[in-house]
Design a protein around this nucleic acid. Structure first.
Lengths: 229, 229
DNA sequence: CGCGGCGTTGATCTCTGTCAATACTTGTGG
DNA sequence: CCACAAGTATTGACAGAGATCAACGCCGCG
């Protein structure tokens, strides 16, 4: 775990407020764990004993039905902590998690965390902050599904990869397009067509590289109530 | 605030674990506040200083765009606590809230809560339980939007009003159908047609009264991956 | 009685899922 | 170096679901 890793941890709402030695005391086993792409982290129904912080890579959170269909609920990115609320409660995971790229993760032990909670109220504050963050994300996901067209959701997704920059930019899609489609609530074919529909707005795709010529134009489109062409 | 009201509060994952005097000490001003239908509680962007527990009535959580359209994100019902996680952070509300019926609410003060958590860490445990609960609700909403047809979402919604009963039942729709449609991510016209499509499954509607002849049959329909009609 | 809000119904259109065919990429083994 | 196979992405044709627009019925209320 190098300096950049600690920097990442400091940026997290949950872990950022804690002294380094406290953070270390919550880690169970090796400080950093490396997972290959497609590695399962936990399954829905498992006892929620750990939560994870992402140093590098992307992690898929999904639900499976008895028939085997799987629905992507969310995909977490580097710098995010997930499964902390349910782990803290000590119940069972309501969803499954799996890496979608190679990942470097920090795993925290729920039992140790629960032991420390009484002595360190800021632990609880941080967990609530993190849980609140996740609530916001899911709230806007529900909103997007209800209100936006597929192209708008895609635009929103691309913008979320760009940060707050303006003008033109060039981004790499972080994982497979089929997964992006699932994350946005559509099929891969629809994603292809949605991407094509963004071409008039200055969005061109080649392989896993997307070039956006005017971020503000794309933002206006993503937020528009009525599709203007 | 009578005995039944306290009973309600006892059923809340967050407040249920707290002693009565602690609950009272968190209340800011009058114990119970009465709101007429359509009363705004807070707007997105306001500093999140309070959270609310619903004794009676229904509260709509929604988002407004710059253009003025609003999207219903969630509708809370009697016995539910909302806005607690974001209030805890001390940031700003990401959504707006408004009563959709006449309401009797209990309002809690964020500052007092934060003070008390320092002194009594078990307060934080309850809050985490509540946040975790709401996360689960949102996760299943995301899943429903992505995976289920409109009729299935409607069936799911009706079942959520029935509890765990079996056999036949009769329920009253708690608010206007246009609002139900928004909650389920569809248009009022589609809601009408979805209701009609449930008739072969033993669901009949008259005004705001719904009669279900076989709850288990409806459950099977709501959970099916492929519509078998 | 007439008006307005709400809900339903009907006709039509658009979009997305589905199914299928076709590149393109990558990796493997001859 | 090439042939081949498997995984991934795009494209086209088609059918179905839901949105849209418009008309009508119902009911409460002045």
């Amino acid at each position: 775990m190098d300096q950049a890793d600690w920097q990442r941890i400091k940026g997290s709402p949950f872990l950022g407020v804690l002294p380094d030695d406290v953070v270390q005391s919550l880690i169970d086993g090796p400080l950093v764990r490396v997972f290959e792409k497609g590695a399962p982290l936990f399954s829905q129904g498992d006892p929620a004993q750990h939560c994870y912080f992402i140093l590098d890579g992307w992690v898929k959170i999904f639900r499976s039905t008895a028939q085997g269909t799987e629905t992507v609920v969310h995909i977490f990115r580097p710098g995010e902590l997930f499964a902390e609320a349910v782990m803290f409660m000590g119940g069972r995971y309501p969803v499954s998690a799996e890496t979608v790229t190679q990942c470097r993760l920090v795993r925290f032990n729920g039992q140790k965390l629960r032991q420390q909670i009484g002595a360190k109220p800021q632990l609880a504050l941080g967990m609530l902050a993190s849980a609140s963050q996740h609530l916001k994300v899911l709230v806007s996901q529900v909103e997007n599904m209800k209100r936006l067209s597929t192209s708008q959701r895609l635009a929103d997704f691309l913008l979320s990869l760009c940060g707050t920059a303006s003008g033109a930019t060039r981004i790499l899609l972080p994982y497979e397009k089929a997964l992006i489609a699932g994350r946005l609530g559509m099929k891969p074919e629809s994603l292809s067509r949605s991407l094509a529909r963004l071409k008039p707005l200055g969005v061109t795709v080649e392989r896993d590289e997307v070039v956006i010529s005017d971020l503000d134009k794309l933002r206006a489109f993503a937020e528009a109530d009525i599709e203007t062409e």
